[in-house]
Amino acid sequence: MTRVCLVGSDDVNLRYELLSRETARDALATYDLREPFENSVGLETVSLGAAVALLNDLNWYLVRFADEAMVLEPSVSETEWLSRDLAAAVRDDAVDPDEVARFCKIYGLEPVSADDGADRDGEDGDPGPDGDSETGADGEPGGGVGGDPADRKRLVEPMYVTRTGGDVPDYDLRDVEETVVERVTESEFGA
């Protein structure tokens, strides 16, 4: 299965924004939505092509409400996400397999305190427009939001790196125990 993770902008509740709009809600209706990181929406699709098609269907909303759209394609990497542009390039065979891993964006992953994110919840802890409470993302990097508050994690301060050899350089922008690696295109890297 190919995973998709949409990361919301700081000033919006991404899940609410997507599910409160009919077209986005309809596009997401067949998926089991998760929250792998704070203020994100995660789901699984049947293939890389399906993931890219879904992102294209949600483009209007992603431009307005999301900071990042990532795809985790097991045939490329079990642990490193692909940017939306790189996922489309891989799907279209427009990128050489050797180039897929060269440019990376590394996010620090830090715990979210109980006070952080309170402004994203409804005043009475409203679970959101779909009526479901947030569920954890079993097995996904970064734990999930829902169960144990200690599992809540957020992506912070990306660091752009070029992979030389086989290893990704260490993340050094903050003191974090975990990181998330996203592979990006050369044009995204230089932007």
Rank of each mutant, 00 (worst) to 15 (best):
T2S: 15
R3S: 15
V4W: 13
V4C: 11
C5A: 15
C5K: 07
V7R: 14
S9K: 15
D10R: 14
V12E: 14
V12R: 01
N13W: 04
E17N: 15
L18H: 04
L19M: 08
L19Q: 15
S20W: 07
R21D: 06
E22M: 11
A27P: 00
L28V: 10
L28F: 11
A29I: 10
T30D: 09
D32S: 06
D32T: 15
P36S: 08
E38A: 08
E38W: 00
S40P: 02
S40G: 09
S40T: 02
G42L: 13
G42W: 06
G42N: 07
L43R: 06
L43W: 06
E44P: 11
E44S: 15
T45L: 13
V46Q: 13
V46W: 06
A51Y: 09
V52D: 14
A53H: 15
A53D: 08
L54C: 12
L54M: 09
L58M: 13
N59V: 09
W60D: 07
Y61C: 03
L62K: 00
L62Q: 11
L62H: 04
V63M: 03
R64S: 04
R64G: 10
F65Y: 14
F65Q: 05
A66L: 02
D67I: 06
A69K: 07
A69M: 04
M70F: 08
M70H: 13
E73P: 07
S75G: 11
V76C: 01
S77F: 05
E78P: 01
E80Y: 01
E80R: 15
W81G: 05
L82I: 12
L82V: 07
S83T: 13
S83H: 05
D85M: 04
D85S: 02
L86K: 10
A87C: 13
A88L: 06
A89I: 08
R91D: 04
D92C: 06
V95L: 00
D98M: 03
E99D: 15
R102L: 07
R102I: 01
C104N: 11
G108F: 09
L109G: 02
P111K: 12
S113N: 07
D115Y: 07
E123F: 05
D124K: 12
D126R: 05
P127I: 00
P127G: 05
P127C: 03
G128W: 10
P129N: 01
S133G: 10
G136Q: 01
G136I: 06
D138S: 03
D138N: 09
D138Y: 12
P141D: 14
G142H: 05
G147A: 10
G147I: 09
D148V: 04
P149Y: 01
R152Q: 03
R154A: 02
L155K: 03
L155H: 11
V156N: 02
M159P: 01
Y160N: 06
Y160H: 09
Y160S: 01
T162Q: 05
T164L: 13
G166S: 10
G166L: 07
V168T: 08
P169W: 02
P169K: 12
D170I: 05
D170C: 00
L173H: 03
V176T: 14
E177N: 13
V180W: 09
E182I: 14
V184T: 05
V184R: 03
E186N: 04
E188N: 04
A191W: 00
A191C: 02
